[in-house]
Simulated assay, not measured.
Amino acid sequence: MKLAASRFRRVGLSVLLLGLLGAFGWVVARTGPLAPIRVTTVAVEEGVLAPALFGIGTVEARRSYLIGPIVAGRVRRVLVDVGDTVAVGQVLAEMDPVDLDERRAALDASVARAGSLVAGADAQLRDARAREALAMINARRYVELGGSNFVSPSVVEAKQQERVSAEASRRAAEASLAGARQDTARLSAERDALRRQKETLRLVAPASGVVTTRDAEPGSTVIAGQAVVRLIEPASLWVRVRIDQGRSGGLTVGLPAQVVLRSHPAQAVPGKVVRVEPVSDSVTEERVALVAFDAVPAGLGVGELAEVTLTLPASPSGLLLPSASIKHQGETTGVWLSAADGLRFVPVRPESAGLDGRVRVSGGLRRGDSVIVHSEKEIGASSRIRVVERLVGEGS
């Protein structure tokens, strides 16, 4: 009896041990390092892709103005505030003229004195011309008398000398008159420059727009070129959008755009690309495009973030795959094809991409081929796989 019980116990332990070994083998085969790699697949489709580009941008003003003095000075008064709408030519601020009025009065007096000098020099010139004319007549007469021996040669020479002196006096008077007139012109130019300088102390709006900042207050001292008031034209607002260089194929002027502003996330504002910057950002690897609104939304502010979708021309019909299925083996771009004879890496060439995550490709694929999209780890041609509907955490 004891022998039978002992034999029964050994058989039970053997069965339990075999069960444990079987369970361990099953776990190793299903979840251990020898288990097949779980993957998700998709069938290659054929269709038409609506390619598009997406980027994040900020609202900027195409035409903005920094209104400030052309010389250093003190702000006398500021007539506008942030948010005010101004018209072209409207006075926005004034600078303190300091001593400009006194300097202009001094120049007015100098111009008047120069006018008197011109009048005096003109009178001297008329007198010199009269003396020269008389000296020429006397010299001619005495030359004739000297030829008839009525006067001595020395008297004739004296009259000739008087003529030469009168001519020199006339030329000196002409030079004095020219110098006086030049002084008058110089002083007049200085007075006009001072007048224009005083006019620049009135800071006027070069265009109609809205005041965005008020950078100086009355009594503040500003340097030449420093802004006192900043102004923008609301009608010139556009979006500076950045597009990933790797996805910027087809970016060109004229592409239609849909702009979703952060302040109105449920509304898309139509627009179009009006400029593509010739210089890209090499640090962020992005291209910059400027998108203008078909109609600028009311209340739009500078600096607001926006999401921009650019619609590219529809591509011809072709094979479509999820962009996640595109892999790289060295310098070769392709996909892992799951066929009856095992895994095979098939080179493909991505041609265009849509915002739905699909890519149109060309290469060694056919419609209906099973392509691996995601895998829980790296796979190779000799890898064992198990197709599942969804990997844990995928898409989360």
Rank of each mutant, 00 (worst) to 15 (best):
K159M: 15
K159I: 05
Q160V: 06
Q161C: 06
S165M: 14
A166R: 02
A166G: 11
E167V: 07
A168C: 05
R170I: 03
R171W: 10
A172T: 08
A173Y: 00
E174P: 05
E174Q: 15
E174T: 08
E174M: 09
L177P: 02
A178L: 14
A178S: 12
A178T: 08
A180I: 02
R181K: 12
Q182E: 13
Q182M: 08
D183N: 14
T184H: 14
T184R: 15
A185K: 10
A185N: 11
R186S: 11
L187H: 04
L187V: 00
S188G: 13
S188D: 04
E190M: 11
D192E: 09
A193T: 12
L194D: 13
L194Q: 11
R195F: 07
Q197F: 04
K198I: 04
E199K: 06
T200W: 10
R202C: 06
L203E: 03
V204R: 01
A207I: 02
A207L: 03
S208K: 04
S208L: 00
S208M: 03
V211G: 00
V211R: 00
T212S: 01
T212K: 01
D215G: 02
D215A: 11
E217F: 10
G219F: 10
G219N: 11
G219A: 13
S220L: 11
T221A: 13
V222W: 01
A224T: 02
A224M: 03
G225Y: 01
G225A: 01
G225L: 01
R230C: 00
R230G: 00
L231S: 01
I232V: 08
E233N: 05
E233Y: 01
P234L: 01
P234V: 01
A235I: 02
S236A: 08
L237W: 03
L237S: 04
L237I: 07
W238G: 04
W238Q: 13
W238D: 12
V239F: 05
V239L: 06
R240N: 10
V241H: 04
V241C: 08
I243L: 15
D244S: 14
Q245R: 15
Q245P: 05
G246D: 14
R247G: 06
S248T: 10
G249F: 11
G249N: 12
G250T: 12
L251R: 08
L251Q: 09
T252A: 15
G254P: 06
L255K: 09
P256G: 04
A257K: 02
V259S: 04
V260L: 07
L261I: 09
R262T: 10
P265G: 08
Q267M: 12
A268M: 09
V269M: 11
V269N: 08
V269W: 15
P270G: 06
G271Y: 00
R275C: 05
R275K: 14
V276L: 09
P278D: 06
V279A: 13
T284V: 10
T284R: 15
R287G: 08
R287I: 08
R287L: 12
V288W: 00
